[in-house]
């Protein structure tokens, strides 16, 4: 491998776009253009730009600024579980 290990780590990491379908299932509407406030550091950004760890027993979305967990999602055979404690809020802009 000609890519240093730390770079390979970063190369495997996706963003919120990669879990748009699951977010749609979880929230019932398009969410990549919704904003969230990270409860740990206060930064605000689109869910699309959260760092997505998708190769795990569940999906973990982390804040790009502070790396803490903003959202977690697990699909079981009977339910889609969402832990949004890492977000102070999640919100859509209103059509004016």
């Amino acid at each position: 491998m000609d890519v240093p290990m730390a770079e390979l780590d970063r190369a495997l990491i996706l963003d919120g776009n990669a879990v748009a379908g699951m977010l749609l299932d979880a929230f019932g509407s398009e969410m990549t253009a919704a904003e969230a406030r990270c409860d740990h550091c206060g930064s605000i950004g689109f869910l699309a730009t959260l760092i997505a760890y998708t190769r795990a027993p569940g999906i973990v979305l982390r804040c790009r600024i502070c790396q803490e967990v903003v959202l977690r999602m697990v699909e079981t055979p009977t339910a889609l579980l969402v832990d949004a404690r890492g977000a102070t809020y999640v919100g859509h802009p209103r059509a004016l």
Partner: peptide, 9 residues
């Protein structure tokens, strides 16, 4: 298939 999905990009 299902979709279309996405609203940011």
């Amino acid at each position: 298939l299902r979709g279309p999905i996405g609203g940011y990009f």
